Simulated scan of single mutants.
Amino acid sequence: MWQIFAATLGYLTTHVYAHGGALNYTVGDTWYAGYDPFGPSNQDTAPYIVQRKWITNEPIFETTNASLACNFPGNPASASIPITAGSNITAIYYSWVHTVGPMIAWMTSCNGACSTFDTTNATNASWFKIGEKGLQGGNILEGNWFQKTFSRWDGTPSLWTETIPESLKPGEYLIRHEIISLHSANRPQFYPECAHLRVEGDGERYPDEKHLVKIPGVWSMDQPEINIDVYDPDTAMKTEYKIPGPPVWSG
C-alpha cells in the first residue's frame, strides 16, 4: 500500500501548494482512489473513483455556499467503498500545511443510490458527525491542535482515521471530511471532500434529529468559534475551543 502512496506522492506534491484535501482512502489494507483536482480528465468516468469531483484546492469562504457540502462541483463518483459498520476508514492527504482549527467527519444517507444523490440542494441531505478533532492541549493560537499534528513536513501523507458507528444501518452513504482552518483572522477557510460508502453489517440505527444538520446551514459567521480572530490576545491565550454544531453520533 505504501508503495502506491510513494508513487502517487511525487506527482501530487508537484501540484499541491498552500492548500490541500483528501485524495485517497483506505479501509484495512485496501486502497481506494479519490479525485485529484490536478489529475487527468478521464477521472470523470473512471470506474474506480470513489470520491465526488472537486476541481480546486482553494478553500471555500462562505458559510452559505452550496458547494460547502461536497466541494465544487460535487459530481457523484463512479464507485463506492464497501465498509462494515464498526470499521475504520482513513482519509489520506498530501502536503497539508495549516495548523489551527477543527477537523470534522460527517455522514449522510443517500436515501438510495449515491450515484444520483444531489448535495447542492441542502434539503436533500441531513448530516451527522461521526468524529471531530480539535484543540488537544495548550492555547488556541499555539497549542496542540490535531490539525497541527496531522500536518506532515517529511514528505509522508497525513492520515485521518475515523470509525463508522457499529450500529449504523446498512445502505449507501456519503462520508464528508471537513477541515476548518482558522489562521486568517475572521475569515475561516473550509476544505470539504465527500466519498461514497456502501455500509454493510447488522446495525439497525440512524441518528435522531438532535444529531442532524443541513450543510450549508450548520456554520454561521454569528458563531464565535467560526468568526474568530486567533491572534486577538484574549482569544489566543484561551485553552478551550468548543467545536460548534451537533454532538458526535457514536451509534
Rank of each mutant, 00 (worst) to 15 (best):
M1S: 01
M1Y: 03
M1P: 03
M1E: 09
M1K: 08
W2R: 12
Q3I: 04
Q3N: 13
Q3W: 09
Q3P: 08
Q3K: 11
Q3S: 07
I4A: 10
F5T: 14
F5L: 03
F5H: 13
A6N: 15
A6R: 12
A6Q: 14
A6F: 03
A6E: 10
A7P: 02
A7G: 14
T8S: 06
T8Q: 13
T8A: 10
L9K: 14
L9H: 04
G10L: 10
G10Q: 12
Y11W: 00
Y11M: 01
L12W: 05
L12N: 06
L12K: 09
L12D: 08
L12C: 06
T13Y: 00
T13P: 00
T13F: 03
T13N: 01
T14Q: 04
T14D: 01
H15R: 08
H15C: 11
V16M: 13
V16S: 08
V16A: 13
V16K: 05
Y17G: 09
A18R: 14
A18N: 12
H19P: 12
H19A: 14
H19I: 01
H19Q: 15
H19T: 03
G20V: 03
G20E: 12
G20F: 11
G21T: 06
A22I: 08
A22P: 06
L23F: 09
L23V: 08
N24L: 05
Y25N: 13
Y25F: 15
Y25A: 15
Y25V: 02
Y25L: 13
T26L: 04
T26D: 07
V27S: 04
V27F: 01
V27N: 05
D29L: 05
D29P: 09
D29E: 12
D29V: 02
T30K: 15
T30Y: 04
T30M: 06
W31A: 14
W31I: 11
Y32K: 09
A33Y: 03
A33N: 10
A33R: 13
A33E: 04
G34W: 13
G34C: 03
G34R: 08
Y35E: 09
Y35G: 08
D36N: 09
D36K: 06
D36I: 01
D36W: 05
D36F: 08
P37Y: 02
F38C: 00
F38V: 00
F38E: 01
